[in-house]
Write a protein that binds this DNA or RNA. Structure first.
Lengths: 273, 273
DNA sequence: GCCTAGGTCCCGTAC
DNA sequence: GTACGGGGCCTAGGC
């Protein structure tokens, strides 16, 4: 397999053998750290020590290490989505030499954490120039669901009016609050984009209890809107007389299902997941 | 900068220019996928489309892409610890060609998710052979703290006896339960290795409420043991008459602080964070 | 397989 | 800055 000279493009290979001593290599690498958009990639035989909120030691093994210009450190092995060791953005990295080995220290101010890497062997060093793409679209997040409810109205009571969103309580923020003045009902809405577990029901419950204490006289109804629900969570929903709405049903609204069909369906707890 | 032939070691550079047509390159890359411990690394100008639980589109930009032999896909930009797009272990990846561009599709059975990448330009392709290190030590996790409490006893009441751990309730699992029979007190212990917020206090509260209903007559006391606590959480602790213990204090025990000093300190809520 | 909870979670956002 | 909650969270452990 051949070899490629790269000058005009966005990946430079650092020829390890050129460097007579580690000092030169160390200095070069330190120059690349924090260079705008320059990512250092090292494949080598390395040992890792991490000390901080937790601590870990990993003996020498073949791993891939990356340093990003924002101070991110990533060390990957052959498996898993997550790095075996890392340092989040903002950490301060620098190369040194110890016992004739290249050494990397990455420190994080917050948490007083550090990762130290010792390199016994280097298989490849490269410097890539990468982008930060700004216009990254993501759809389907909780916020969008909340917005959809706001724009289409509360499915279980079309006469209820939105009176607040992201309402702060000592227990956290209530996603949405609706009120039907004629029937003297307040709806406390909790939205989860994922499948709801017991924690979600309890979160809703403490909002409802809080509002019961702070708006006496009103009927408070808790409404959980989520993408499915676990068995235990269903039981709690029934225990507390809350209402569960599956997000799928809301999506069908958007696809022009008749609204009155909805009112009928939603008059009872909808537990289909 | 020079170039390095690599045969004996653990990084092979794939010379892109050697391949007259993309077909050959595509076939080569497909051969490397799922090779034992072979990680494919591609630095290039790529477009990404993701569809699944959420969805996203990222226009062409310079990014670094990795495929691990366990089916992990990672795509990184110049910033951030997390990849901009990814696929967890177990996904099925294969290279193809579309509109004279190299194309990668990674599919995940579960969730029916897929990531599709189109490469307009390739700056570097490498194949690394990495390890999976088995003996990775981690200390300081919540379980260790729980074990420590079990071995040293409940600091606030040395006469209380451990009657259970990981006790299942409809609201989740209680970390530890202690009982002092003489004083007819049951302690519900919630342990957090991190700084406690309102969610942790509420979690404790629902355990306490549940146990109040299911062990009538006993005095139930909620005890939160955590690594610091937020202001709002303190207020809730006081509201509910719970006890907060800072994990630091427990650690001091281990360092041979006198136990009776402890009993004094712990007889009141310890709110120092 | 589902469910539950922890994590060096990371990350954005509001205060 | 801190605090709080979401996330395509991921990952390990139970059942």
């Amino acid at each position: 397999m051949g070899c490629r000279e790269s000058g005009e493009d966005y990946y430079k290979i650092v020829n390890i053998h050129i460097y007579k001593n580690l000092d030169e290599l160390k200095d070069l690498l330190n120059k690349y750290i924090y260079h705008k958009d320059h990512i250092i990639i090292i494949v080598g035989y390395m040992k890792i020590i991490y000390r901080g909120r937790a601590s870990s030691e990993a003996d020498y093994a073949r791993r891939l290490l990356m340093i990003k210009p924002d101070g991110t450190l990533l060390i990957h092995e052959a498996r898993g989505r997550d790095p075996v060791n890392w340092q989040p953005p903002g950490s301060i990295c620098s190369f040194g030499i110890e016992n004739q080995e290249l050494k990397l220290r990455c420190q994080r101010q917050q948490y007083n954490e550090e990762v130290i890497v010792y390199f016994k062997d280097l298989f490849h060093i490269g410097v890539a120039i990468l982008d930060v793409s700004n216009f990254f679209e993501v759809k389907g997040v909780e916020r969008d669901i909340v917005d959809q409810i706001i724009s289409t109205g509360l499915p279980i009571d079309r006469n209820a009016k939105l009176v607040g969103k992201e309402i702060s309580t000592p227990h956290g923020k209530i996603d949405l609050v609706y009120i039907n003045n004629e029937r003297n009902i307040m709806y406390i809405i909790e939205v989860k984009n994922e499948k709801a577990g017991v924690a979600a029901v309890d979160q809703l419950r403490r909002y409802v209890e809080y509002m019961k204490q702070h708006s006496r006289g009103r009927n408070i109804i808790g409404v959980l809107i989520a993408n499915g629900i676990s068995d235990e969570a269903i039981k709690l929903i029934l225990t507390y007389d809350f209402i569960f709405l599956n997000i799928r049903n809301l999506r069908i609204i958007k696809r022009e299902r008749k609204l009155d069909t909805y009112l009928k369906d939603s008059s009872v707890n909808s537990l289909s997941s």
